[in-house]
């Protein structure tokens, strides 16, 4: 889980590179990497109608429910993948290590076998990057100082205007 993470730009770029490659190979409409707490890490998408932030939160809960199902039926580890087949759209969820999830949204024109193949390759590439995520937690400091908190409070006032 990425609680308290300040992620260097080059690491995000590397991850986005893997997602972009996966998208070019599969022609998937939306690909994203999230952590198991539902935090979106990176995305590549041509689907403006799909909100990757919401998808991340829902996917994490989906995977958590599946993990509990696995435990209930005697599976020692979490399921490696979840596939949802719709009439027009499909979603393919893969675990990346223990703390991250890769989501691929694709339509019926894309072959499932292709998605399986290239997603598996992408997961292999993402695992060492995900491990780097978990080693960068100590630094650098977040850009939050006393002034930041005061400005934040002012902005809240501005956003909510006349409420109450």
């Amino acid at each position: 889980m990425t609680s308290g993470l300040v992620v260097p730009a080059d690491l995000v770029e590397d991850i986005e590179g893997v997602l972009a490659h996966l998208q070019s190979k599969t022609q998937a409409g939306c690909i994203l990497l999230a952590d198991i707490g539902g935090q979106l890490i990176a995305t590549q998408s041509t689907r403006e109608d799909v909100d990757p932030v919401i998808l991340s939160a829902l996917t994490a809960s989906n995977m958590a429910a599946a993990t509990e199902i696995a435990r209930q039926i005697g599976e020692e580890k979490a399921f490696k993948l979840l596939f949802h087949e719709g009439e027009r759209q499909n979603s393919y969820l893969s675990g990346v290590g223990d703390s991250f999830l890769l989501v691929v949204i694709f339509d019926q024109k894309v072959q499932l076998g292709l998605v399986r193949l290239f997603t598996k390759q992408a997961v292999k590439q993402l695992i060492p990057l995900a491990e780097r995520f978990e080693t960068v937690q100590a630094q650098p400091r977040p850009p939050v100082d006393n002034d930041f908190g005061a400005v934040l409070a002012d902005e809240l006032e501005n956003v909510f205007g006349d409420w109450e």
């Binding site: 609680s3 308290g4 993470l5 300040v6 937690q137 100590a138 630094q139 650098p140 400091r141 977040p142 939050v144 100082d145 006393n146 930041f148 908190g149 934040l152 409070a153 809240l156």
Partner: peptide
């Protein structure tokens, strides 16, 4: 909500980058 956001930003300031 304001109290929660204020608390979160104060906590970050006082503890620095978690980890």
């Amino acid at each position: 909500l304001k109290a929660a956001i204020d608390g979160v930003s104060s906590r970050i300031r006082s503890t620095g980058a978690p980890g």
